[in-house]
Design a protein around this nucleic acid. Structure first.
Lengths: 247, 247
DNA sequence: CGTCAAATTGACAGCACTCAACGCCGGTGG
DNA sequence: CCACCGGCGTTGAGTGCTGTCAATTTGACG
């Protein structure tokens, strides 16, 4: 098992942002030809990460943000005493590594859940260019703000939802993001284990499994290992904001 | 009770960042005289918010970030079905409003827990100036990254800690931030109710109260309403990373 | 002194955790 | 080809932490 590549696989940049099919996901839109060309300067290179390998680790020096081209990542923080928490799952078109900016070193691990490829964007180059290209500056700010808002949502989930509400919200979020990328609205393949889902949702893996089973019993989803088919999206949405309304 | 001022109290800027005693908390450090002067352009005005009043609300258009000069805020998100979650408590020198950048409107409420005054910093002005002053650009990025990292910590807390661990972590964080601002390392006055603490920590107010009582029994803290004296800081730290180590 | 919000405390219940056994599936080696 | 293995997932039984509901106390304020 190659858990990690001692010398990460790098390759010279061949495909430019200007004609990348994921551009509208990770780059600003509505740019003029000239500005678009300049964006190509941002991506220094590509880097491949094998399943199970890490893009970066807690404590490593921060130099670059990464735009995911293909594959699927999780980010997780850990305490000295072995406790750890998945803080997010990232897929193609999403930006990863923002945590490293504040202290010039990363504060979480980014692990590939399937073979992945990322665009390496040196942060000093991003800062330099965003001083000249206003649209890029705005875009960087929005990406960071979006991450803050996303985490607010996770805090709401972790702080005030029951297990079934958490899992329902998780599935809806995942399938919605996949749909944006051209996948089905109702079918998805989970790239993470039950334990990783549980860590993200603040639940134990058994609870995740049980909750899946309950959804199956209720005819809301069909589950076959990591293949999930959402049969009744409306029911999931009802669960998310049910608040277990009593009285 | 003035819950909110229909026309917010505004006042022309008198005191400049360049000689503000909170500057090292909310502004970049190590600037030259000339750049320091330019920072003064950022703060458009001051705004007072009474206890219980809102600085901004979910849905309101976003125009500015706010630097807290005096007072104490909470930010909270809510769902349609009445569930809500305190996402953070902010004190003097901290920046508030970052959530609004991504969609040009705020996605949470900012409520003053005591009479407060903030510096209003129009975001377009921040963006404009940070294109010219590199230190400001970097600073803005670091502030947003810091917020992301902070929220990672909250997610870890909400996702994997027991009630006493959460409260211990909360107290230590609060007293540490107050200490940075020149207050005691061991004494603090809570500006928020048990319910607000509970909302932040993902607990019910009764659990917060009970956990306080347990700490008092164990001789770790002294509590008299909102006055808290930390008697045994080491014990609190032990609780935070106890992980309830078994075996 | 009366009022009301906030906080405390008790009794009880329930949801999620713990511990454990078992099943499924892909990989590996004989 | 098949048996074995290990990781992952499911399910069951029992426990306990935290939530729920309710009564009471405290303290601030008019």
């Amino acid at each position: 098992m190659t858990r990690e590549t001692a010398s990460p696989q790098l390759q010279a940049i061949k495909v430019a942002c200007s004609n990348c099919n994921l551009r509208e996901l990770c780059m600003p839109v509505g740019l003029e030809e000239q500005q678009l060309k300049r964006l190509d300067e941002i991506v220094a290179m590509r880097r491949k990460v094998k399943r199970g390998g890490t893009l970066f680790r807690n404590g490593e020096p921060f130099t670059s943000l990464f735009a995911i081209r293909t594959g699927f990542f999780k980010t997780c923080v850990a305490t000295e005493d072995g406790r750890d928490q998945v803080t997010g799952f990232q897929m193609a078109g999403e930006i990863i590594g923002l945590d490293g900016i504040v202290n010039d070193h990363h504060t979480c691990d980014a692990v590939a859940l399937e073979d992945a490829e990322v665009c390496v964007m040196p942060f000093d180059r991003i800062e330099e260019l965003s001083r000249e290209v206003t649209a890029l500056q705005t875009h960087v700010h929005k990406i960071m703000s979006r991450e803050i808002v996303r985490e607010h949502g996770v805090m709401l989930l972790l702080g005030s939802m029951r297990a079934d509400e958490r899992l329902a919200a998780f599935l809806l979020n995942l399938v919605q993001r996949l749909h944006t990328r051209g996948f089905s609205q109702s079918e998805l393949v989970l790239r993470m284990t039950r334990e990783e889902i549980g860590s993200y949702l603040g639940l134990k893996l058994e609870t995740v499994s049980r909750t899946f089973s309950k959804f199956v019993e209720d005819g809301i989803v069909e589950v076959k290992q990591r293949h999930v088919r959402i049969v009744d999206t409306a029911a999931l949405k009802r669960i998310v904001n049910s608040q277990q309304a009593c009285h």
